[in-house]
Simulated scan of single mutants.
Amino acid sequence: MNLALSQGTVLGYCSCHHGEILQGVFRDSDGRLCRGLTTLPVFGPGVYAEFTPVPGTDPEELSVHPRTKTKAATAAVLAGAECRRRGRRGSCGGRIRLTSTVPLGLGMGSSTSDVIATVRAVAAGSGVSLPWNTIAAIAVRSEGASDPLMLDDHALLFAQRQGRVLERFGKALPGVIVVGCVTGGGGTVDTLRVGSGAEREADVRAFQRLRGMLGRAVSESDVALLGRVSTESARHNQRFLPKEELGALEEIAGEVGAAGVQVAHSGNVAGLLFEPDAPGLRGRLRECVRALNRRGIPFSHLFRNYPVPEGRETWTSTSRTRSAARTWCGSPTGSFAFDSRR
């Protein structure tokens, strides 16, 4: 999404995700082994990149603030070069300022959000619309691996180290309500340092099976099957980024009737998935939060994985006590609320 502001300034935007539903090693259409993932979208937190052109400057003079956003700075240069390659000879340099509500290092795609928002802003400033695969290629060159946040319509299996789609599942993921939490004490994770292990044939077969199950879950809008996929994927990835809380999260899921457990395979966010139309949902959500508190797992926020039409209810917590976890959602309004202390 790109927005025009005054005096030639434009905005690029990118949302984030809440970790993965599935991540592993798969075979592509040619039978080659390839690492891939399917992320769980989040609506709300994201990154805005404000690009202000400076007429008369060298097109390669693109400054990014905060200066710590080095991946976004690399992406800005690559995006500018791509725009010039497409014939925008009159482009100039400029300033890019990033504003983010995505936590860093928790596995929510913060760096990819920075990169994509930056690319979109630079492209908009040059009057160019870059296709998703070009944005993906720039993101991979800037980061070494990229989440599929440049593609936000249908569920898909994405090769994060190559920036290509392995499979499109035809529809969005089944709608779920997610009770989010933070594992590992909320510590940050260097995602590129997370080991992925050797491609054992047994693992490949297991992930291929989960891939097929995910396809059925999407086509049939089956939340229960989606929960099975995400839980099994979390178990398989324990040997790469172990989460001491996974056993407790699975116990809680069984106690409160959640469809399954979902984790960031290269971060510390996690969640329990619920069918939006499940009987007694509000009571189950309250009990889920209480169960997390009893086990010392910080509850972070409650959210949907699909957009809510304007004027419809929004899910939030009205607990008077602050969560021990960092809360990254704003203060949404709506008709539904619950007090996790009850």
Rank of each mutant, 00 (worst) to 15 (best):
T134L: 15
R235N: 11
G144M: 09
T318D: 03
G8L: 09
A270P: 00
P66D: 05
E313K: 09
R35W: 14
S146D: 12
P309H: 12
A234G: 03
S100G: 13
C14R: 02
F240C: 13
G296A: 01
G267C: 14
G247R: 00
A76E: 03
V218S: 14
L225H: 05
D152G: 08
G254T: 03
V204I: 05
P242G: 00
V204A: 02
P131D: 10
A324N: 12
L37R: 07
L226D: 02
A234S: 11
I135N: 01
P66N: 05
H65S: 15
A325P: 04
L33W: 03
W132I: 12
P45K: 14
G330H: 08
L11M: 14
F303T: 15
L273Q: 02
E61V: 09
G56F: 09
T327G: 08
R161H: 14
D58R: 05
R200M: 05
L156Q: 10
T318A: 06
F51W: 14
A172N: 03
R200Q: 07
A253P: 00
S331P: 12
V182E: 12
Q262P: 00
S319H: 11
Q208S: 08
G254H: 00
M213R: 02
G260Y: 06
I177F: 07
T118L: 03
S129P: 03
E220W: 03
P45D: 12
G170D: 04
L214W: 13
R322P: 10
G330E: 11
R95I: 14
A278S: 05
G125V: 00
S129W: 05
L302K: 10
N293T: 03
P307T: 13
R85E: 04
A324M: 13
V269Q: 06
L3Q: 14
L37W: 07
R211Y: 12
R141M: 08
I138P: 13
V178N: 02
K69R: 05
A253Y: 00
G186I: 10
R304V: 09
